[in-house]
Design a protein around this nucleic acid. Structure first.
Length: 457
RNA sequence: GUGGCUGUAGCUCAGUUGGUUAGAGCACCGGAUUGUGGUUCCGGGGGUCGUGGGUUCAAUUCCCAUCAGUCACCCCA
């Protein structure tokens, strides 16, 4: 029972995996920076009160709470404990929690730093988040999100740029056939208005979001069980027969929503973003408009984004949307924001599935010095120091063990070149370099080494 | 949180109606080869058969419980 383990839903990352993960992070960071976004970080833990009530009732239960230090039971809410009110009791023994996403801590950050920030504020953030739900394929309890948000502007140019960021990042990662799906909360509101279910907007969106998963009949069933009348359900029918190719979808929606002011505004917004994005041109993404795309988060008010990879064994890999008043809950009203999030772990899984990682993604040591003994290793250390200053990745084997073992080390680590300085080379002032893949080797003088290594690498 | 499947070496898995010393491949270590890795040959280490209980003369095998993993549903990145 002393076998070590890690909590479920968490992972260790090997050097190989880290090289590939960094390839993803570097790509994402590079694109974010090319659009002028600046990086921030926030603490792994937030005050529990900052997080609760932001993710709906189910979301609140998935927040990892941190037990207070010290004699936490002394201050615990005894009555809540006795009646078995876990929720109330937990607040009396926990003041801190692990962050659940990057958006809410960002909203808190903006409010706290509002006087130092220049608006519109463009930030990105790449950090892990934690959720206590059941792990599964593509679902972890600790995972990374890569968020970009623009806060303090309601210009639709932001939406257009975010579409371009999706496209550029996923293009650079060679994700095949990815689809950027677009919708607008105002369109959903308009549809609800026409069906006379404005008060049940959330119930409606939760149900219709499942359309492509469970089919029209099941969605209609679910709407009925959620208290929709047959008439209301039948008024939602056009929604189930929409095209997803953007131009067609927009014209169908415009027609359907022409009597709804809110709905028409949503269609206008959608059309602006779509036309702009299509005019500028996408690199390899497919742009779709899907009025059934809802996404669970309650705070979206305008655009809604999601990215899917049809043939991948995983749901969405990215999401996002516009929220008109996210900072309002922290006391700063009237700031509109729009942002998207890349699920780096899911992108990793998709790339593994399609074997998309370039061989060079795990570039490690380029040259290993074999160690033959005290005098030889001194020469190796000198040379290694010079080569490192030239930007070459070098290691010196730390012990003068059998050559076979040192060669195997180089082979196992896929080090392409091995340098040998034994007694012969030491006296002649030369270096023998072996190219591992071909097995060929050559002997050169010391002052040729840097030039030669440069040349072969 | 609800239901199905699986737990045997570091990994992937065998294991006879329940029977005496639980095997293989890969990986690891050593040797053939004391200045040459990736191929080959030889040898070696490693297991409380997930854990606890029950049935039995006898359990890796059958039964129950529990834990862990996994797939579908709910929800999400």
């Amino acid at each position: 029972m002393s076998k070590p383990s890690i909590p479920k839903g968490t992972r260790d990352f090997t050097p190989d995996e880290m090289a590939r993960r960094n390839f993803i992070f570097d790509t994402i960071r590079g694109v974010f920076q090319s659009f002028g976004f600046a990086q921030i970080e926030t603490p792994a833990m937030e005050n529990l009160a900052t997080l609760t009530g932001k993710y709906g009732e189910e979301g609140d239960q998935l927040i990892f709470k941190i037990l207070n230090n010290g004699d936490f039971l002394a201050k615990a809410d005894r009555t809540a404990l006795e009646v078995g009110d876990s929720k109330k009791a937990s607040f009396s023994i926990s003041k801190k929690a692990l962050r659940y996403d990057l958006t809410v801590p960002f909203a808190r950050f903006v409010v706290m730093n509002q006087n130092e920030l220049t608006f519109p504020f463009r930030r990105f953030q790449i950090q892990p988040v934690w959720r206590g739900d059941r792990p599964g394929k593509g679902r972890y309890q600790e995972f990374y999100q890569c968020d970009v948000d623009i806060v303090g502007s309601d210009s639709l140019l932001s939406e257009v740029e975010l579409v371009q960021i999706f496209d550029e990042v996923l293009h650079r990662l060679h994700i095949p056939g990815f689809e950027i799906v677009l919708n607008n909360r105002k369109v959903l509101a308009g549809i609800a208005e026409l069906a006379g279910v404005t008060d049940k907007l959330t119930e409606m969106t939760v149900a219709i979001d499942k359309l492509d998963k469970i089919g029209r009949e099941k969605v209609e069933e679910e709407l009925s069980t959620r208290g929709f009348t047959d008439e209301q359900v039948s008024k939602l029918a056009p929604l189930f027969e929409m095209e997803t190719s953007p131009k067609e979808a927009i014209s169908q929606l415009r027609d359907h929503l022409k009597t709804s002011e809110m709905g028409s505004k949503g269609v206008d917004e959608l059309e602006t973003v779509v036309n702009y994005a299509l005019d500028l041109g996408l690199r390899s993404g497919k742009l779709l408009v899907d009025p059934t795309l809802a996404r669970g988060l309650n705070y979206y008010t305008g655009a809604i984004f999601e990215v899917k990879v049809p043939d991948a064994p995983i749901g969405s890999i990215c999401g996002g949307g516009r929220y008109d008043d996210l900072t309002g809950i922290f006391g700063l009203k009237g700031l509109s924001g729009v942002g998207i999030s890349f699920g780096a772990d899911r992108i990793y899984d998709v790339m593994s599935h399609f074997e998309l990682f370039p061989a060079g993604a795990s570039r490690g040591t380029e040259l290993l010095f074999v160690n033959f003994g005290a005098d030889e290793e001194r020469r190796c250390m000198q040379l290694a120091t010079e080569l490192r200053r030239e930007g070459i990745r070098v290691e010196v084997y730390p012990e003068a063990t059998k050559l076979k073992k040192q060669m195997k080390y180089a082979n196992d680590k896929s080090i392409p070149y091995v340098s040998m300085i034994g007694s012969d080379e030491l006296t002649s002032g030369q270096v023998t370099i072996k190219e591992m893949e071909s097995g060929e080797q050559f002997t050169i003088s010391l002052n040729e080494v840097i030039g030669k290594i440069r040349q072969v690498l």
